[in-house]
Simulated scan of single mutants.
Amino acid sequence: MSPELAVEIGRLEKMTVDQLVAKYEVTFGEVCRSRHKRYLIRRIAWRMQAKVEGGLSDRARKTANRLAATSDARQTPPRDMSVFEKRPKPKSTKTKEPVVDPRLPPPGNWIERQYKGRMISVLVLERGFEFSGKWYRSLSAIANEVCGTNYNGFEFFKLGKKPPKGKS
């Protein structure tokens, strides 16, 4: 990596989230859907390096897009929504309402905790949580990954005790 590129990437660390979002939109030519500072820095730095040092070949990019569009393990929906039209419709039209724990903030909010000098930021979703760009079913799964041992997610994030049954 050239020294000029390293300096330019170093400047990203000092930018605010709003500045990073604007830089992301200019760099990628699309609307930014994230407000996660670390994610934005990594994506922008990757793109800057790819422009200077060369990115994927056209053949590799086409293969990756083809594989990602048909994969069942996606993090975000594909840009080409026709992939979903080919799949069979679900048989049941009934959907279960998700059970929401009263200790959790509403979907779209962040839960943060300092752990061993590292800020752990988790986005609350309608069903589950997002941490480091991956989806998790429970806070305990995230706590286990961070700590490397079994840990109650609500205790790890200091969200209090569960209220007794019958009381809310």
Rank of each mutant, 00 (worst) to 15 (best):
A141I: 01
G117Y: 04
S140I: 00
R118N: 13
S132P: 05
N109T: 10
S121V: 14
L125Q: 11
E155Y: 01
F154G: 00
G117N: 08
M119S: 15
V99Q: 10
E155T: 00
Y115G: 03
P98G: 03
F131E: 08
V100I: 11
G153K: 03
R137W: 07
G108A: 06
Y115H: 15
A143E: 00
N152K: 10
R118F: 11
T149I: 11
R103S: 02
G133W: 08
Q114K: 15
C147M: 12
P105V: 02
C147D: 02
V124T: 08
N150R: 14
M119L: 15
F156C: 02
G117T: 05
W110K: 13
V122D: 02
G128D: 05
G153D: 01
Y151M: 14
T149N: 09
S121Q: 15
L125H: 06
R103L: 02
F156Y: 04
V99S: 06
G153W: 01
E126S: 09
N144I: 01
V100M: 06
N144R: 08
F131G: 07
F131H: 14
R127L: 10
A143P: 03
K116P: 01
S140P: 00
P102F: 01
R118Q: 15
C147F: 02
Y136K: 09
L139E: 00
C147S: 06
L104C: 02
V146T: 01
F131M: 12
F131V: 07
K134M: 10
R103N: 05
G148S: 04
P102G: 01
P107D: 05
